[in-house]
Design a protein around this nucleic acid. Sequence first.
DNA 1: CGAATTTGACCTGCGC
DNA 2: GCGCAGGTCAAATTCG
Length: 329
Amino acid sequence: MPTGASTVRAGTEFGSESSWTHLGADSDDVDGVYLFSAGDRESSILSEFGWNFHQEYDDQPSRAAAEAEPDERLGSLERSVDLAEGADFRSPEPETAAPIGSSTSNNPSVSSSSSEDPPEKSTGSGGKPPPEIPNKVKKKGQKRMRQPRFAFMTKSEVDHLEDGYRWRKYGQKAVKNSPFPRSYYRCTNSKCTVKKRVERSSDDPTIVITTYEGQHCHHTVGFPRGGIIAHHEAAAFPGGHLPPPISKFYYPTIHSTLLTTTETNNNNPDHLLTNITALSNQVFTGEAGDSGRVVVKESTSTTTSDLVLPVPDDQGLLGDIVPPGMRSR
DNA sequence: CGAATTTGACCTGCGC
DNA sequence: GCGCAGGTCAAATTCG
């Protein structure tokens, strides 16, 4: 039983408030160093990435809205979101064109795309259409709009990571060039259209790639344990309806532009190493520090900077991972 | 018995 | 237009 997470621990900050502090950036585009520390910053940081969550959540709408700074940020955000296009990580940018910058003025990509999807989803969600109403019709002439996506690469033995939401599997498909199938899940909340895809990397079977699409319109149902985290996450991701309110070590994902590879070792909880890979080919490598933070170095062809990521208490670290055999079903 | 999962079929988008 | 691959549906099956 894993306990002494010397390298990774901390948590206190998590218990209460938290936020990311931008310590500095080496380059204009690159994120600088972010420190998780106080409460308000988070929203600003989020806005840094273009996330301005203020819709539907009364919890902290004012704050989010107030601090949200659309404009410039949005650009990158949306781009990242698009880049995150999970389906195929090989294809750099599926449809970057559309959303970027277009409706950014007021609605972050998130809302813009969602506004677009709902209608489509409604019919489609159900999916597809009852035989009588071919959705082809509606699709005609209009390219299917996708909701923002976030992809996470998590090193884990478990395919389906606990993220505080309830999911219902609605399909599974064999993936080309990969011996591992891809599973499709949909949020069980009838009003929620969020979907997620889970697959294992063909390159490294130990890596689980989870792609979230859309935004939750409700709170998490709660974590198996360590509800605080869930709550916290919700805070970290304004509105809590962002796809990523997942396990603690998904923090890096707050940087929506990144793909994260988090390694969790049930045998050695002390070892929580996170590799963050930006979709833009920027490579991040990280190492757990005993200061309760994970320092992530970003290596790009042009610059290098550090990202200091918060690491929750060790207990929780593994707690969110559902051990094999413990899966809900 | 209701809910969740499995799985083959069908639909859609895209490249050739 | 055709074929391929991804995505979704929905009936059947399994599970709690």
